[in-house]
Design a protein around this nucleic acid. Structure first.
Length: 710
RNA sequence: GGGCGCUUAGCUCAGUGGCUAGAGCAUCCCGUUUACACCGGGGAGGUCAGGGGUUCGAAUCCCUUAGCGCCCACCA
């Protein structure tokens, strides 16, 4: 009997974790025979250079609850750990911490790659240990990294298959250029900020017949057309005509075109078309066969084609110069202040400048795929939700997802950074691009871009199981049962996994998506480094114990909703852990002499207690099945404290003192029964303390693999 | 501009047609001989944002108003 003093998590947790790890039961291959049906989850791979924060603590808690619950229920449970190389984020962090720039490496990419890799690995081990502290029952023998050898093979296989199916194409396109990060980014990596901007209405020159409106006059030196709505009567006479105009030191060749995308009600109803620096204009130029003139370079400065007046200037300076030019020449008709969205890179914060770039790889989401019933990726992504092959919890995110898929455009997967997967077998000669294992010819050169990091994480559910090899793991554990993540990466990650799995495997990557909310501080602020309001889960673990941290994370957080976390909450569940400890101590002290073979007599109330417990177990199971862990946990808390401790234990005190042996033995039986069943029911939530007590009760087996009581 | 959601006790939140609307924390009163003061017993505290409707019955379903929040978007 060792349950002395108040519960001290520090003496228990590391010891218990080692006990579990040594048992081998985190690995489904080692589980006893009764564990047959698979249940699998892939851990959303955190950035390799990250640290465990409140969001990851919540993620680990929810997933470990599911895994432990299903393991006890007899499933063959696999929870795969791993980390994400997070290309841009890691490269940026490395350069910043080492106070280096890519130029310092003089093009020595391999050397650079090695150093970043090493940097990443050091960080990784720290973070993985943090997950152990949380009690995560991850199968460490299957640890994966999005940039390790096996995953590289998967990436290459996926890329080549998509390319040969015609789903990946390359070419010169107007892309989102991050002027700070010096790379292209995809549509989802852009944030829009509303700003006040001046909308200028003006003519290129006095002899040009149509006035146009823009908030970016500096781009107008790259105009090749003016577009009007085909039904706009004001401009009918000019459609099809071409004008040569002198504008701010350059000669523009402006064709007047009709395009239905133009809103006749906005501005003058006429749009100056700048094919090189606007995505919508680029589309319009493609439809109307217009030339494109790049006037802004990759550093956000005007180039030589922009004319002597502004060449070499930053875009904002150039804007002033052009506006002055317009004023001097009396060309401005109207100036008004409007709200405008400006695009910024969500990673670097740099302004996004649309500009044309060669050799860019895209995933075509609108191409019918022969081997998938002529459906497009977009249709496949939509179908799995509509046909309920995948459930998203909470359901409202299905609408958000579908809405996003509707608006989906081709995905630019090229990145101009070094740390990441090289685009496999990619070569260029001038504008030409070829995918070939061998160098296609003398004049061909390697395309040195890397892939968007989400390309590799999109493969995660099956690349971690050995794909493209036909492994036993893949057969057993894919599709995975549940994917659990924050709703903020629904479009980045969840959607890409669906895309990849649908095409490459013709199957869903998971059956259920469980989305958790953001963890916020007491003032309802997002937890972020810049606010300095981060609560370190490790601090909380050392103050309150991992079980208390897990309870604090899960209770009061319903699926898909943000939650608030505060010190009081951790404290409350630390008290609960102590309550469990003391109640167990009481039971043990009073059942030392219990003989399992003794004749027992139960009072009507005691029988009722056992019935109630049975009911609670059934309800808990139902709630867990419905992913309502927060309610299940709260119910257990309430039952254990206010029913078992406050009522049942109190009432048992007199019965334990009964002179009638069968009454005493009956009471002992009941107490032991309720305690051990409670420990089982609470184990997914509070694994350390329940296992510790289970062990101290003299059980030979691990609570972790005990049979679930309902 | 399009879409989604939230508003329930002082605070954080549960509760998707049915007993008198719940929990945790906080608060107030009482209580220290042996499981636990990291405790026990008791109490106060809510026109479920406002209005309208459906229903035998509404926090829950529908409409509407207000406030707050999120996502998407190439009105230049």
């Amino acid at each position: 009997m060792e349950l002395l003093g108040p519960y001290d998590s520090k003496n228990v947790e590391d010891k218990i974790y080692k006990l579990w790890e040594d048992s081998g039961f985190f690995n489904p291959d080692n589980l006893p025979k009764r564990h047959r049906k698979p249940f699998s989850i892939v851990l959303p791979p955190p950035n390799v250079t990250g640290v465990l924060h409140m969001g990851s603590a919540l993620m680990v808690t929810v997933e470990d609850i599911m895994i432990r619950f299903e393991r006890m229920r007899g499933k063959k449970t696999l929870w795969i750990p791993g980390t994400d190389h997070a290309a841009i984020a890691t490269e940026t962090k490395f350069l910043k911490e080492k106070k280096l720039s890519r130029n310092d490496f003089n093009g020595k990419r391999e050397e650079f790659f090695k150093l970043v890799d090493q940097f990443a690995t050091e960080n990784r081990d720290v973070m993985l240990n943090q997950m152990r502290k949380m009690g995560a029952s991850l199968d460490w023998s299957r640890l994966a990294y999005t940039l390790d050898e096996k995953r590289t093979k998967a990436v290459k296989g996926a890329f080549l298959r998509m390319h040969s199916a015609g789903l990946i194409y390359a070419g010169e396109r107007v892309i989102n250029w991050d002027t700070k990060g010096q790379t292209t980014v995809s549509d989802v990596e852009i944030d829009h900020e509303t700003q006040k901007a001046t909308l200028y209405t003006f003519k290129y020159s006095k002899d040009f017949p149509i006035a146009i409106a823009t908030t970016r006059p500096e781009t107008k030196v790259g105009d090749t057309a003016v577009a009007v709505n085909p039904s706009d009567e004001r401009y009918q006479q000019y459609i099809g005509q071409t004008f040569n105009v002198e504008f701010a030191g350059v000669t523009l060749n402006i064709k007047v075109i009709a395009d239905k995308e133009v809103d006749p009600a906005f501005g003058t109803g006429a749009l100056g078309v700048t094919p090189a620096h606007s995505l919508i204009d680029a589309d319009m130029a493609m439809r109307n066969n217009l030339p494109s003139i790049q006037v802004i370079n990759e550093f956000g400065k005007m180039n030589d084609k922009a004319g002597a007046l502004v060449a070499g200037k930053k875009t904002l300076e150039a804007r002033e110069i052009i506006v002055n030019y317009l004023k001097e020449h009396n060309l401005i008709e109207k100036e008004e202040i409007i709200d405008q969205n400006i695009a910024k890179s969500s990673r670097s914060g740099g302004i996004i400048e649309p500009l044309p770039k060669r050799h860019q790889f895209f995933i075509n989401v609108n191409k019918p795929i022969k081997e998938r019933g002529n459906k497009t990726l977009k249709e496949l992504m939509r179908e799995v939700i509509v046909k309920k092959k995948i459930d998203i919890l909470p359901e409202r995110f299905e609408k958000i997802y579908l809405n996003w898929v509707e608006n989906l455009r081709d995905w630019n997967i090229s990145r101009q950074i070094w740390y990441g997967h090289a685009i496999p077998d990619a070569w260029y000669k001038g504008e030409e691009v070829k995918i070939s294992a061998e160098k296609p010819g003398e004049d061909w050169q390697r395309i040195e871009d890397t892939l968007d990091t989400w390309f590799s994480s999109g493969l995660w559910t099956f690349s971690t199981l050995g794909w493209p090899e036909k492994t036993a793991d893949l057969k057993m554990f894919h599709p995975t049962s549940v994917v659990e993540s924050g709703y903020d990466i629904l479009t980045f990650w969840i959607s890409r996994m669906i895309l990849m799995s649908q095409f490459l495997l013709g199957d869903v990557p998971f059956k259920t998506v469980y989305l958790h909310g953001l963890v916020r501080d007491e003032q309802n602020r997002k937890i972020s480094k810049s606010l300095g309001n981060n609560i370190d889960p490790l601090d909380m673990i050392s103050q309150y114990g991992a079980d208390a941290v897990r309870m604090a994370m899960i209770i009061g957080t319903s699926v898909g909703n943000d939650s608030k976390i505060s010190q009081e909450k951790f404290k409350a569940y630390k008290n609960f852990a102590n309550k469990i400890w003391n109640a167990s101590k009481f039971v043990q002290m009073n059942t030392q002499d219990f003989d399992p073979k003794a004749k027992i007599k139960l009072s009507a109330d005691q029988k009722k207690n056992l019935k109630e417990l049975e009911k609670l177990a059934k309800e808990t199971t139902k709630l867990m099945d419905g992913f309502k862990f927060y309610i299940a946990g709260e119910n257990m808390y309430h039952y254990f404290w206010h029913t078992f401790c406050d009522k049942i234990i109190e009432e048992s005190k007199s019965a334990l003192a009964s002179p009638e042996p069968s009454v005493k033995a009956g009471t002992q039986y009941m107490l032991l029964e309720i305690l051990s069943t409670s420990l089982k029911l609470m184990h997914p939530f509070m694994p350390f303390i329940t296992e510790e007590i289970w062990q101290q009760m003299g059980n030979k087996s691990l609570l972790m693999i005990e049979e679930w009581p309902a």
